[in-house]
Computed example of a mutant assay.
Amino acid sequence: MTEQKFIPKPYSNSKQKGSVTCASPSNIALVKYWGKKEHQIPENPSISFTLDNCKTTTTLSYSKKEDINSFSFDVFLDGVLKEDFKPKIETFFKRIEIYLPFLKEYHFKIETSNTFPHSSGIASSASGMSAMALCLMSIEKELTVIQSDSEESQNYFNQKASFLARLGSGSACRSLEGDLIVWGTHNDIDGSSNLFGTKYPYDVHQNFKNYQDTILLVDKGEKQVSSTVGHGLMHGHPYAERRFMQAHENLSKLISIFKSGDLDAFIKIVESEALTLHAMMMTSMPYFILMKPNTLEIINKIWAYRNQTQSKVSFTLDAGANVHVLYPENEKVAVLEFIKRELVDYCQNGHYICDQIGFGAQLIDN
């Protein structure tokens, strides 16, 4: 499959104006994507849990305009005009114009809000860009007279939405569906693609159903180094090629782990992946550290608690200081008590978010 598949035929319908609202969650990678090629193509495959409560809701209002030579849009976050968001949206529109040729025909009002702090280390770009992609695909569907609800048509819709989201933010392609999403071509996973995220196709043990993720907000400020810059530093990184191989190997191991329900093996891979991600940051040139002292305190507390109780609690990290505490549903009460008793003091203002596995983006209104 190539990108050409997503270039549409001339639209058969026309709309003067309209509005669509979509909500899309963030996701947390278990095998990490770090490093990308041109056009948002990942250097290695990744797999993620789709979240449920950490989401972005976007309303996209559109109206026909006379000047079709340029993009026209305004962006609002929580009702406040955000001029500083416009360059990223402009870049996104330029990348996807060939796949959505109606973009210059309309003025867009983009109204967005998050259920979590912006730039908190939770992937707001993933939830935001996936919500935007779903809104845009809903508009394209309105412009296409012949609409089908067949499985083939829905698969195309989901694939293109994920494809478009990827061009806005790589990890956004993993937020359109759930509960486990693979992004990046992998020899052992049928249907995997560099172009879009796909639902994990194999058996998943009951141990991983309704898996919990409590996000400890260690630092809610802007990251010192953006993910885009961090990805770029993988070019010429002395350990990059071995890291890309490791990601392939760990994803292969997870296939049997998901089938068997082996939580101890799951913990080893997920925690190793988190620490490897940050090790790559610390060994790039220039090098940088996104973890904070409290991040390490939390990790050590989790290890100590696990050793004392034989709990199956574990952690993972994104490219930031916050800690995602992962645990099976049957430990929910005990782990939350542990978090409140021993970990909350390490969170900024005592803030944390309780979340769990979710099942992707939703069209709320049209």
Rank of each mutant, 00 (worst) to 15 (best):
T58V: 13
P8A: 01
T112E: 03
P87T: 02
K15I: 15
Y106R: 11
N207G: 00
V333F: 11
D179S: 15
Y305I: 04
S175D: 08
F73C: 05
V344D: 04
I255G: 02
S127L: 08
G121T: 05
P42R: 04
S193E: 05
T198R: 12
K88E: 13
Q308R: 10
F244N: 12
L251P: 04
D219I: 08
E273S: 14
R341F: 09
L216V: 06
Y305L: 02
N207S: 14
S138T: 15
I353C: 01
R166N: 12
I146V: 12
L134Y: 11
A126I: 03
P8D: 02
K209W: 01
G121N: 01
L336M: 14
I181S: 01
S119N: 13
H231P: 05
L100T: 07
V225D: 09
E111Y: 04
E177L: 14
L290N: 06
M282Q: 15
C54N: 13
A279I: 00
R95C: 05
N155I: 14
E142R: 15
I146P: 00
F258Q: 06
Q362M: 12
A240H: 04
V333W: 08
S70I: 06
N349T: 10
W183C: 01
T276H: 15
F49D: 01
S113C: 10
